[in-house]
């Protein structure tokens, strides 16, 4: 268990990860380009990983569990990004645009 505030340097990383989370969500909410949306997801993938690293460091020593988590979750993230790019290519075939505004044939 960790009392936050005792380890000065890990807090910086934690704040960084929080910022990545917020930036990722901001990108998802506001960016019109599908590429940018995928980039936002990529940023979101980074956020929990960074948090894991920070918390692993905060345990006092470096926790090997968190490293394993991060590596696995990075590969999962890579799979997600790969698939999303494949879907984007598929979308391009049908819509000839990467603007997410255009992808609104399904609604209501």
């Amino acid at each position: 268990m960790v009392a936050i505030g005792t380890y000065g340097d890990f807090e910086v990383i934690l704040v960084l990860s929080l910022m990545m989370l917020i930036i990722g969500v901001y990108g998802l909410v506001s960016k019109k380009s599908a590429i940018k949306v995928i980039m936002a997801i990529e940023i979101l993938v980074g956020a929990p990983n960074l948090a894991f690293i920070a918390f692993g460091y905060a345990q006092g020593t470096v926790d090997p569990m968190t490293e394993a988590f991060v590596i696995i979750s990075l590969s999962v993230g890579a799979a997600v990004i790969g698939l999303s790019l494949a879907f984007l290519r598929n979308l391009w075939k049908h819509f000839h645009t990467t603007e997410v505004d255009a992808y609104t044939t399904l609604k209501g």
């Binding site: 998802l28 997801i41 999303s84 879907f87 049908h94 819509f95 609104t104 399904l106």
Partner: peptide, 15 residues
């Protein structure tokens, strides 16, 4: 349909 839907699904669900 499926191109659009799968992209939406992916973005929302993976986030």
């Amino acid at each position: 349909e499926s191109a659009e839907a799968s992209f939406k699904y992916l973005v929302m669900s993976s986030s």
